[in-house]
Design a protein around this nucleic acid. Structure first.
Lengths: 140, 140
DNA sequence: TCCAAGTTTATAATGGTTACAAGATTATAA
DNA sequence: TTATAATCTTGTAACCATTATAAACTTGGA
């Protein structure tokens, strides 16, 4: 059975072509697209797609924990297929968002857990200048 | 000299009553208010205050690094007076945002720094159930 | 005190997001 | 299969937070 069909079934979501397309798109395109980007990219191969549907599906998938909504930039909402837990780096020069693999267990997390907080989600993001942009600057 | 006057001067911002009031408000009220909350609270003692001004001032202060804009919840933008570096915990039950003191140095951060990323800002937040709400559940 | 630069204000415009309702599709069970 | 209820998709319209604008006012420095 299709991997994405399975994902939706597991979460008790009805399997529709729109949900499958968006899931597949997010999995194959790890570019942290915003709603507009998803809509315009998928509209090409599926002209009847409505932007309302993109909003609805993103909302459903996010609630089902199949994707993460990132709010790194103040008003820009980005979507990220939820595979392994990972964090993010936003380059303030080129505005690229990097995925950072690797857990980040840290003192703070251990501390609040020991204090009785039940932590379900750990979000971390760093901002600065990425390797490529740092190099570029030195050469100027 | 007034502490807030000094903060503004240091950053090269003109000292206006509106900026002072908002700075003082954020410093004295560590409640992570949104724009609407700041506006309605300050409007009481300063009826001519315009919401546009709140937007402008928050924008100026944030650019001057005197406050932090939090985007923990998808669409809720919260303002946080920038004192010591700290992180946040959002309780999904009571929707309270806790300030977490303490650094969160972690392997991931060290790793990307060693790879040539220049990290200026470290943002971390956790979501889950806070101590009080966890206790409440057990008693049910 | 005067002036230029910057700030505040009210109003209007913008545009991303949501509400709605009709029609289509899906899952389930007979 | 076919019927049925529940759910989903779509386009349109409405909403409302944020931004643009321009006039009046304030600030900081000469």
């Amino acid at each position: 059975m299709d991997r994405y069909v399975e994902l939706l079934r597991k979460k008790g979501l009805k399997v529709t072509p729109q949900r499958l397309e968006i899931l597949r798109y997010l999995d194959k395109n790890r570019i942290h697209p915003n709603i507009e980007r998803i809509y315009s990219d998928l509209k090409k191969g599926h002209p009847s797609l409505s932007k309302t549907t993109v909003y609805n599906v993103i909302d459903d998938l996010s609630r089902a924990d199949l994707l993460q909504i990132l709010t790194i930039d103040r008003f820009e909402i980005l979507c990220d297929f939820k595979a392994e837990p990972h964090h993010h780096f936003l380059c303030k020069e080129c505005h690229k968002v990097y995925d950072l693999d690797g857990d980040f267990s840290c003192h703070l997390l251990e501390k609040i857990r020991s204090e009785g907080f039940q932590v379900d989600e750990v979000h971390g993001y760093f901002k600065g200048t990425c390797r490529s942009c740092s190099k570029g600057k030195k050469e100027e």
